[in-house]
Design a protein around this nucleic acid. Structure first.
Lengths: 196, 196, 196, 196
DNA sequence: GATGAATGAGAATTCATTCAT
DNA sequence: TATGAATGAATTCTCATTCAT
């Protein structure tokens, strides 16, 4: 399997750096190859074409992210707790990898529609996970029985994504990870000041 | 002022259609010119370059959107009501203009980073408006005194934006406008089922 | 019609020279453009792609060749005379244009199969003309009633083509045009020395 | 001598099949190696470079063809008879090997000029043989004393070659071998219907 | 002898922008 | 103002050949 070959990950990691530092359209194959320390042609021994590098990049980085979250929330009993763990993991992952954050939040979004559709396929796994947590929250009574699952998913993902993008665009000046509890609290309780 | 010349808006409207129908990267200047019924060179009498068309497009369409909202919420007294009006207006505007929805939610996002930064400048007016409403809610006691304004703004915009994008990507199969009250309710009250 | 535009023929003529002097594979679009005195991009205002230049080249040069021959033989009464006129015209045309001879006999043959098939479409008109002359010869009794038309056409075209190619490969050392009567005589009478 | 090593012919035969099935430009060294059941690098133990495979291919297939013909016509006394034997042998050889016919008539012709010149060197033995037969015919009085030997050779080779190419391009729908006597008759007697 | 992973040179084409009319 | 023909820079991918094992 090609993923065992050391150069496969070597090229993907080089692509993340090259795109983060040069921008999506200025990250030519030759730049990625140079960053990876291989010849241009070598890229094509491991990837069908340039687009394939980007899709693989996303799969490798996001693919095991969903798996990791699932492991982390496996034993937890409340949906709220699971949600918090997920938000923390999401923020942690991107806080930890400066280059990856730039690539996923800014650069990869300017790829063409076709590529974005394929990226969306990868994202679907994550969105499904969010929906499962919401559904569970409704079943246990933690969340309102009237909660629209799709809407909730959109609010969760939209808020997380907008927060990360905002953090990246502000040059990561604030502590993203530290925001997790507040974001979580807002999602669960809203803006209202009602004291019960 | 160039905006008074009839061809200025003619070209912007042509750009919206050309981009929506062909995609961002396939909307060449010559296609926009053809759609507008002018020669390629004429474009450059009204716009500095291609990027300038897109920024102007965003300014024209979003610019008066902020003004319109401000008028609509002028007399209202609660922040919650203002928020609902804004969400409704946002959903209404994009429901009403199929082409514009595709352009702002999908196509313009694949522009380069530089252009997106300029678009963000335009967006700032909208984000400021959101922040003003949140702040007012805190001051009147409607919203929690501990509410982080920036976070609230990110949640509001992220949720609205993700909802619209999801609607566009699902080929606008559901009624976007009808979702406004639910979105509003979630933002204010969260997912929690607490009955007081 | 694009053929009236001066640059159309200018580019075709430049292609003949560039290919003759550099060889088919070394005649890059940029070389053709330079030879024609236009920018690379200008080529694509007149031709769909590189292949289209070559097909057009062949059409322009061979297309009117068939028409010209038809005019020249219009009034003649014997098939043998028509054949002689045709052979002379064929030899004349290539004797007159050194570059064109190299291109049609040597360089264009190393194009890919697809292009060669299209060239063959153009050639078909010529082959049909040959067959018409043969058929006429049979009808008038000049040629044997048993003569296989296709075979005769292959012999005529094969002999002419091989003679020209041999002439080009020998760096055009001998007088091609002067060979026409001998070739004609051989085709009509064969090698035999039968005296009747 | 390398020709005694089994892999030498194995690679040449693989090249014939690979070229016939994929076309000249799509018959990469790696495809030939795969067809031959050896590694890419192994090719270079037996051949200097890719061109060398093709020249060797032509030498092996055409080289012994000339020798074979010489044996077959050794005892014959008339030039006409020798010519007939030669035409039959030529048609037979290509009728028998479908792949070889495609390679020699269509694919190898799109090689570059340099390679074609080398192939012509190999062909020269065959052309010399044709000239010897023609010369002999003139000496014995079978053929006209005025017959131009080179021209006759061009007519013979041109006709045979065009006939075979036509047969290959028509997907070998007719019986090539059966045409030999007619072709032979036309070469000797021409199209004329003169009855003596 | 045999392997096959790695190399790296080389070329067609697009499209935003200009400027003579 | 308006035109649209002309410009020319810029980049992915292929494949013959090598050489360490």
């Amino acid at each position: 399997m090609k993923k065992n070959k050391p150069k496969y990950m070597q090229i993907i990691d080089a692509a993340v750096i090259a795109i983060a530092e040069n921008g999506y359209h200025q990250a030519q194959v030759s730049k990625i190859a140079k960053q990876a320390g291989v010849a241009d042609g070598t890229i094509y021994l491991y990837f069908k074409n340039k687009e394939d590098i980007l899709i693989s990049l996303f799969e490798e980085k996001m693919g095991n992210f969903v798996e990791k979250i699932e492991e982390m929330i496996a034993g937890k009993h409340s949906a709220a707790e699971k949600l918090l763990i997920m938000i923390k993991a999401h923020f942690q992952m991107l806080s930890d990898d400066h280059h990856l954050a730039i690539v996923t939040q800014l650069e990869l979004r300017q790829s063409n529609k076709e590529l974005r559709l394929k990226i969306n396929d990868v994202l679907k796994g994550y969105l499904k996970l969010i929906e499962r947590i919401v559904l569970e929250g409704k079943e246990t009574g933690e969340f309102s029985i009237d909660l629209d699952v799709r809407l909730a998913r959109q609010m969760i993902f939209g808020t997380i994504d907008e927060t990360v993008t905002s953090w990246v665009m502000n040059e990561e000046k604030f502590d993203l990870y530290a925001l997790a509890p507040s974001v979580h609290h807002l999602l669960i309780n809203g803006f209202g000041s009602r004291e019960c």
